[in-house]
Amino acid sequence: MNIFRFLGDLSHLTSILILIHKIQTSRSCRGISYKTQLLYVIVFVSRYLDLVWTYVSLYNSLMKLFFISSSSYILYLIKIRFRPTLDPSIDTFSLPYLIIPAAILSLIFNYADEKAWLSEVLWSFSIYLESVAILPQLFLLQRTGEAETITTHYLFALGAYRALYIPNWIYRYATESFVDPIAIISGLIQTALYADFFYIYFTKVIRGQKFELPA
């Protein structure tokens, strides 16, 4: 564990708490993409189910449990509790375009060996899917052209999480000679997808202005 990864994990955890807070206090999931949240449940279940047969540390297991349960809870909030506030007509990104390529890539590029085939394929699938899981949310943002400030804080914390993993990988390369090309390439792509959002967040939201996309 190093400081970058720890801060990244905290940022990830914070983003989820912000989202739950936003939905519960406004009693609405307005501006939130159900499809992105569904993808995160798929990502976390396919990656973290290994907590059943792999023990790394108490921290690791508790975080995995948190991510699986909180993302499922968010799905419940959106799809059942506050379902009337959901507007499917603006959440139109097609999920097969993301899930199918991630599945194909995971069958081709993975770290599977004789001992661990399924778990390694599932792991790489979850990494590929996570790298693009934010697209339905960004697409929704693009369509509405604006966002509540709390939603932008959620997105910033979520983007900061993968951005912080980049110095973590550099640090691990320097100190342990450890390189994980699948995680690194996917992580770089995932972070790059936030570039536009980060730009508007830093130039507008941080200065107290409303998040609005240029017309």
Partner: peptide, 10 residues
């Protein structure tokens, strides 16, 4: 240590 995923990363 190269070419395996980091099991300690989330």
């Amino acid at each position: 240590h190269v070419h395996t995923h980091a099991h300690d990363e989330l």
